[in-house]
Write a protein that binds this DNA or RNA. Structure first.
Lengths: 67, 67
DNA sequence: GACGAATTGGGTAATTTGGGGA
DNA sequence: TGTGTCCAAATTACCCAATTCG
């Protein structure tokens, strides 16, 4: 099934586009493993799906791109 | 098929192929260090990974090749 | 040809990244 | 496709010498 059920009914956070490791990797021109490393070393925040996979906020990615 | 059709309307996201310093160096026939110097002196734009490495847009490289 | 300024590459050590496999 | 780990390759920043350009 698609992993892109990104709509959050939760009202606490802004409904924001979440990106997979592969998508973030493509944006930066690096390997998906490298993106996971960034998460482990605290360089980019990440959310975890109940299945243990990571998702990244578009805004966090943009913040890194802009400096 | 992509897992999710993530639209990237955001202008900050480079929807473009990115090249490593080594690849750009090979294209121009120079040392990778020289490519990084071009970036430092503003001769070619570059993105930075959170790890501090540089990536170059294909279009910027082409512009330099043709200009 | 001589001169100074800028560009480039060599060498090094530390960090980041990617490949292979589980 | 994604995760976690090990290891080799690539990249970075630094200083210095050789080369190139006007």
């Amino acid at each position: 099934m698609p992993v892109s059920n990104v709509v959050e009914p939760d009202s606490t956070g802004p409904t924001e586009q979440l990106l997979t490791p592969g998508e973030v990797a493509h944006i930066f021109g690096v390997d998906p493993k490298t993106v996971n490393r960034w998460s482990l070393t605290g360089k980019i925040p990440s959310l975890k799906t109940p299945g243990g996979q990571r998702r990244y906020r578009q805004s966090d990615v943009n913040a890194l791109l802009n400096g």
